[in-house]
Amino acid sequence: MVLRSLKGSLCLLFLWFATTIAIDIHGRVEWNDVCSNATELGRAKAILDSGSEYAGSITASGDFTIFDVPSGTYLLSIITHDYTFDKLRIDVHNPADAQTVEVRPYIEGTPLHPPSTVILPYPIKVSAKGKFAYFSPPDSFNLITMLSNPMTMMMVFGGIMMLATPYMMKNLDPEALEEMKKEQAKVAGVQKAIASGDFKGGISAIMAAADEATAATVAKTPQKSGKSKKSKR
């Protein structure tokens, strides 16, 4: 077609050479669940590199053509407002032969060399990877979420326990009660010693406590004491 138009015109023969050392790159946006048609996609362009020289618009059918691309290595990106697409690396080796156009996946920010070993088919096929979600859901008041908040639950539980313990104590076995009181006294002793800064006394109190459960609480106390010391400073 190009030939015919320039028939008989010698000076334009150069022009013909100029146009044949470039190739038209064809591609297609495949519709998927993320983006199912051109109206949804909106205005979109396929660009090579910065798009200042080689670019093509995406038509209603999803096809695009980037005209007159000379040999070289390019990054193809699809520019849209609302959708994300993967970038592709396009190598044009011999503009006279469309079979030599190589398409490879490309991950943003990685060096172009060495090229990926995966070769994708040409003509290019791309599809939307995701749709941008610009809005964050509003925080609304909900009694259930408020009550399921651990702080609220703790508070409510504390309140109930406060009311319920006297009755529970009443129903408790007197011996068990005695045991519990002892234990409480031990813990209180340790806590008191630490609070007053008397570590030796605290440690001896801990040593004295033979009970395993008490020992478990002690494991945490040195850390706590260190912190309290730092904060005092």
């Binding site: 990054l75 172009l112 060399h113």
Partner: peptide, 17 residues
């Protein structure tokens, strides 16, 4: 700016904004 300075024979770096 746009970084396009990638020599075609030696593609070590990458192009982009």
């Amino acid at each position: 700016y746009y970084e396009s300075e990638v020599p075609s024979s030696d593609v070590h770096r990458t192009k982009g904004y």
